[in-house]
Write a protein that binds this DNA or RNA. Sequence first.
DNA 1: AAAAGTAGCAACCGCAATTTG
DNA 2: GCAAATTGCGGTTGCTACTTT
Length: 292
Amino acid sequence: MGRSPCCEKAHTNKGAWTKEEDQRLINYIRSHGEGCWRSLPKSAGLLRCGKSCRLRWINYLRPDLKRGNFTEQEDELIIKLHSMLGNKWSLIAGRLPGRTDNEIKNYWNTHIKRKLIVRGLDPQTHRPLNATASTTTANSKFDFRNASHSYSTLTDIDLTMNQNTFKVIAMADDSSFDDGKCNSGTTEEAPPQLLQPPPLLAHHSDQNCQSINLDLSIGLVPFQSLTRSESANSNSAEIELKKEQEEVVPYQFVVAARPSETPAPQAVCVCWQLSFQRGQLCSNCSTNGLYR
DNA sequence: AAAAGTAGCAACCGCAATTTG
DNA sequence: GCAAATTGCGGTTGCTACTTT
């Protein structure tokens, strides 16, 4: 037995919403709150599918939406997030307060794609257009979007690189990352367990590190948003994304080698800053991404 | 001025994930 | 544990406004 449709299509309006419909929906949600989209249309006196109501509210009527043009900063943030997440519009939207996934998706398709092409970059791979074909097979280049691991949030991504596993610890940019503390980024606000996930980063200065056998996890969490108790009870792969950010903040990603049982001759420490400036290495990194 | 082409965006559709009974 | 119901997401469509010929 197949599933029944989410709502009765025969007696629902389609197409553009009228002002009256908008007002009914706004009034209803103001007094009853969001949720229960299936029953909402009937309760609100709307001849619409519940999905349609939800979409209209989320993409257009929500009071916290920021209408208007995207700023240059937003553009760059979208590009950077897309380079790591691919078409995960809802995740990208989660880092852009006041913007919806649909809005960002449309904006991407109509503006940013073209912008990247003008820059000579492939909008999908974010690599130089003439280099895309030759680099996509390089084992050393890993692609978050093509990671085999299935993920629904940024909190847990496993990647492989030449049969080795990597761990990525991501943290918000505190604008003082290049302070020689590649392994910690410690600040007063920094949750110790987020920023010092032993033994991953704590070992990166160990010159006896031998192989690049790494675990990878990733979280785009501005650490200001995490309480110490949260961080104390969760490892980096379990951190929840805070979607209710009040402002756009840059994020900083750290990729670092985790030494395996067999020591490696040189640890890898690749740090780059996901901010509005071009990526930068931390002071502990040499330009080839190896730890000094 | 009219037709054709293009761009932008709201809305829809189908599917997957999650929740509920 | 299972099936149905609900919710959420990403891709696509179609309408409208604007530009070009």
